[in-house]
Write a protein that binds this DNA or RNA. Structure first.
Length: 592
RNA sequence: CGGGGCGUAGCUCAGCUUGGUAGAGCGCCCGGUUUGGGACCGGGAGGUCGCAGGUUCGAAUCCUGUCGCCCCGACCA
């Protein structure tokens, strides 16, 4: 059936909506695809649903090809399964919680691991049933602290989430690989550039995890990559650990007066001015050891101080540190924290003092002390002497102090070596479109999903979880495919295959446009026909450009001479052709 | 949660400083003209000025409180 614009439920806006900043949001609202319902929550209009359905169809095809079966769970779920895995608490404020009339707790699912696991537990009990991959396309809910950028970061969003079930680690590897391969095909078909990066397994638990990031400056994730092929989310980046150096023969540590040096820069200046190195090389920030006081806030609200030591030329990366302490949150220590620990001399904190170790679980303060991986045995540092205005020079790791452990505490900077030896890394921003994840046995264990193996023994199932943000993908495609006049969809996801425009008032124009629409439809194309009477050509052209169907057929002043125009929005090419050749020209344009 | 901005017609906004009958453009309805780049003429419908309280003879405008939204940051399986 040809869709007629005169009666279609579509209304374009002449002005940009005042609450939309990013391009995809602005154009999707203006062209009548979506409407804002609440912050981060959107209603889908017919033309928007069509694009969404096209993306979902591609995903469904590739899921089927990967051997996954589609199911559908409610978005509204009871508390108990999430209680069993601990995620009712772990999710914190990001979880939408609600109660029924009896006061029973429910949630709007942020993701569905628990209920998929329980479904399989309900129905399967034998290794013979495995492997199994099942998925759904369903709306997810996360109460983001600040939804933004329209569909790119909503509180309700559509996600394809797949789950695999195996009873051996090798089986999980294979299932993971199948999903990963499917993702590569999906993003290729959608025409989206992507980088597969190593990801932090995070609070989900599990081992192997990779993200599919679309490189874009507006992305919310920072990742690194090397020319040699290494790619990782900065949160998952691991520092190349230098070789330990011999301690024998190193000079003794010396305490110097370094008045008014609360910052690394002031310290370096004073050190060079008053305590220069013997070898003539100037001191740099990299020679200093910066000790930063942080507070770990556990889920139950308890607060523990921890001190992190890192080279002075590096900044603390709280996100990277948080990976090590998940699910606890990490924040900078407050004045109150310092007041409770008078042993800490702000600006002059260090692990060593003449009276003994100051930092560490076995020290005077008893505060846990962790260092950056670069602080290996035999390295020498300038660091605080735990007295106002004094620093200790030549403090040797492994001789004068030892840490309780190592933590990835520092920011990653361009030029840092990749851990696999593939060269220096560069930093880039990316939008997370997909995530593949080896969950392992965490969920199966918590929920008691076990099967009998070949030997009749109960074994816990191992799982994978695989997500694609459908609505985020849609917004990303819109973000990528537009010009100053509107959207320009790729053929694969365009809401219609061709947009026929009738301009003028000549009945012959409308007859011609009708005929062409019918002909295009008869060869299997989905046609949007602008049959609106008494609407000026400028308005029709403007709407066609805004809506973004890539191929437009214009019936207008040429019909008297037997011609129409076929217009490829993607290239800007407009070609007058005989009416009889219109369908063929459309087909030719579609084939490139 | 910190910082900034904004709530007036369906949409985009003016009016507020200096209180005095609620405005414009677009959109919508009726009639007519127009038809290849967001036409025009005439007539019309449409708003508790976010909400509550206060000051005042009188509040969209001044004061207090409150709610909401947008942007930047923090946060974000």
């Amino acid at each position: 059936m040809v869709t007629r614009l005169s009666t279609y439920f579509l209304r374009t806006l002449r002005d940009d909506p005042s609450d939309a900043e990013v391009t995809s949001h602005r154009l999707l609202v203006r062209a009548g695809y979506i409407r804002r319902q609440a912050p981060g929550v959107f209603a889908w209009l017919p033309i928007g649903l069509k694009v969404k359905a096209k993306i979902e169809a591609i995903v469904r095809e590739e899921m089927a090809a990967a051997g996954a079966f589609e199911v559908h769970f409610p978005a509204l779920l009871p508390r108990e399964p999430f209680e069993a895995t601990g995620r009712w608490e772990e999710y914190g404020d990001a979880l939408f919680r609600l109660q029924d009339r009896k006061g029973a707790d429910y949630l709007l699912a942020p993701t569905h691991e628990e209920v998929f696991t329980l479904l399989v537990k309900d129905l399967y009990a034998s290794y013979k049933d495995l492997p199994l991959s099942i998925y759904q396309i369903q709306d997810k809910y996360r109460d983001e602290a600040r939804p933004r950028a329209g569909l790119l970061r909503g509180r309700e969003f559509t996600m394809k989430d797949a789950y695999s079930f195996d009873y051996t680690d090798a089986g999980l590897d294979a299932s993971y690989q199948r999903q990963r391969d499917a993702y590569e095909r999906i993003f290729s078909r959608l025409g989206l550039e992507y980088v597969i990066v190593k990801a932090d397994a995070g609070a989900m638990g599990g081992s192997q995890s990779e993200e599919f990031l679309h490189p874009t400056p507006v992305g919310e994730d920072t990742f690194v990559r090397s020319a040699g092929g290494y790619a990782a989310n900065v949160e998952a980046f691991t520092t190349v650990v230098p070789e330990a150096r011999p301690i024998e023969g190193l000079a003794d540590a010396v305490v110097h007066d370094t008045p008014d040096t609360p910052t690394i820069q002031t310290l370096v200046d004073v050190a060079n001015a008053h305590h220069p190195r013997d070898d003539g090389r100037p001191w740099t920030a990299a020679d200093t050891l910066k000790n930063v006081v942080l507070a770990l806030v556990a889920l139950d609200g308890t607060r523990e101080l921890v001190i992190v030591g890192l080279p002075g030329d590096r900044d603390v990366d709280l996100k990277r540190i948080e990976v090590a302490f998940a699910p606890a949150e990490v924040e900078a220590a407050t004045e109150t924290d310092f007041a409770k620990n008078p042993g800490l001399v702000k600006g002059y904190i260090g692990p060593w003092s003449p009276a003994g170790a100051v930092l560490g679980e076995e020290s005077i303060t008893g505060i846990r002390y962790l260092v950056d991986p670069r602080v290996v045995d035999g390295t020498e540092w300038i660091t605080g002497a735990n007295e106002q205005g004094r620093h200790v020079f030549g403090l040797v790791a492994g001789r004068d102090f030892t840490a309780d452990g190592v933590v990835e505490a520092s920011t990653v900077v361009a030029g840092d070596p990749a851990p696999d030896g593939s060269g220096p890394v560069e930093l880039a921003r990316g939008m997370e479109l997909g995530h593949v994840f080896q969950l392992g046995r965490k969920f199966a264990h918590a929920l008691g999903l076990k099967v009998l193996d070949e030997n009749g023994k109960l074994v816990t199932v191992t799982m994978g979880s695989y997500g694609i943000g459908i609505t985020r993908v849609l917004a990303t495609i819109a973000e990528l495919n537009n010009d100053d006049r509107g959207l320009v969809w790729p053929l694969t996801v365009a809401p219609f295959d061709v947009h026929v425009v009738a301009t003028g008032k000549d009945p012959l124009v409308f007859e011609t446009a009708e005929g062409i629409s019918a002909e295009l439809e008869s060869v299997g194309l989905d046609v949007l026909y602008d049959d609106r009477p008494k609407v000026s050509p400028g308005v029709k052209f403007g709407d066609a450009e805004l809506i973004g169907v890539p191929i437009i057929v214009i019936a207008g002043r040429g019909v008297g001479e037997g011609t129409v125009e076929v217009w490829d929005r993607r290239t800007g090419e407009r070609e007058p052709v005989a009416i009889a050749d219109a369908a063929e020209t459309v087909a030719r344009f579609r084939s490139v």
